[in-house]
Design a protein around this nucleic acid. Structure first.
Lengths: 213, 213
DNA sequence: TGCGAACCGTACCGTACGGTACTGATCGGG
DNA sequence: CCCGATCAGTACCGTACGGTACGGTTCGCA
């Protein structure tokens, strides 16, 4: 309603006040987990009233959905226009992608939202799960798909099924790190080895799907 | 206390009555998620009293820990004594391992327990997460390590760091399937492609770490 | 200046959960 | 045959949450 107000906040139909509230809610979630994400707590942290929360987001689930959409709208991935690829620049781009992927997955907001969606997967028919999948994964997946396709067009990569190749790249890069972090493994130690991990995964990936070896 | 009673149920110090209770609790968790795992619900489902639950397990967290230990003790992995390996039998063993890995990860009890531990990761200092990691992952990881080591000793595989090789194998096999299932993706459709997935992942793994290509 | 909309803060309600206490029934051992 | 221990069933308590209602305040606008 009152469609004149939308201040083009971040792609969503949210006022900046509502965005600030969602920001506080995300912070609460990151700091204290799902248990800390109470309507009263959000209202207190954001200096707003519970009544406003329910007017804006309708429901606790609506609020959580808005949090996911809000966060996703902030992490727009800009895909580098990767034309004129040679073998070395493809490898560089792949390594950058791999590092970005690890950084995103290790981000505390991403971890908290994934934990939240996973915790609710059994009760809400995985509505949040699909939303996370669509708004988060799909983005970075498309970036990878474009990169792989460009590599193939340049004769540097060879594969039949792009999804299969992307699956291999994803697996080589992430392995079981994401799950370990979701389970609470301290991420501080791991982040230092991201670069090495990324380089080595890309090297393996090129050994599998590259043409120049 | 009263250490004479332990009936050697499944490696834990549990009577079979307590095991039956944990079984019901797991069933509740699988069917309804964490929200359905209430002390009253467990007592009703298992025809026992809440007082007994607290006497046996001390606490809701203790009960959940007991559930994890109980389930882990049931899924003992027997590692095939893999001596006299040739290239073909190594590949067969690897494929069997990959399929087993996918089946375990896609099991509904495994998924439910992982969801539960992930949901609690932020509030309990990841105690449950470490427990799952230790009791579940470590088992199948050791089986894989033994297989890889045997392959290397037979001159069929070459790698410096066994953990690194195992990480690559795990990533190629699992990719992001585990997370998708944790987020609620329907597992029924996926299971049919496990075999193909496993074979292809092992093929890639051997291309990376095998000596005969 | 007066009006109405939006909104904050808080009080409130119903419910559901974790945990405890009590009662009565069952059962094995002396 | 009785005693003590164990346990099922239930009632109970304190707490905390989701959601609603209400009084007071700010602010844009006519």
């Amino acid at each position: 309603m009152t469609a004149a107000i939308r201040e083009a906040n971040a792609g969503e139909g949210l006022t900046e006040r509502q965005g600030a509230v969602l920001e506080q809610a995300l912070r609460l979630l990151v700091d204290g987990g799902e248990k800390a994400l109470t309507t009263a707590g959000i209202a207190r942290a954001a200096n707003c009233s519970k009544e406003s929360l329910y007017k804006w987001f309708g429901d606790r689930d609506g609020l959580i959905s808005a949090m996911i959409g809000f966060q996703a709208s902030k992490v727009r991935t800009q895909d580098v226009a990767a034309r004129a690829l040679d073998a070395e620049s493809l490898e560089r781009h792949l390594i950058v992608f791999a590092k970005d992927l690890l950084e995103v997955l290790a981000g505390d907001v991403s971890l908290a939202l994934n934990r939240l969606a996973i915790g609710q997967a059994s009760r809400d028919g995985s509505k949040l799960g699909h939303m996370l999948q669509e708004r988060g994964r799909r983005q970075i997946g498309r970036r990878a798909a474009a990169l792989l396709e460009a590599g193939r067009k340049a004769g540097l990569l060879t594969f039949d099924d792009a999804d299969e190749a992307y699956g291999a790249l994803y697996g080589l890069v992430v392995s079981d790190w994401h799950l370990k972090m979701l389970l609470g493994e301290e991420a501080g130690e791991m982040k230092k080895s991201f670069s090495r991990k990324a380089e080595q995964a890309v090297s393996s990936f090129l050994a599998l799907y590259g043409t120049k070896r």
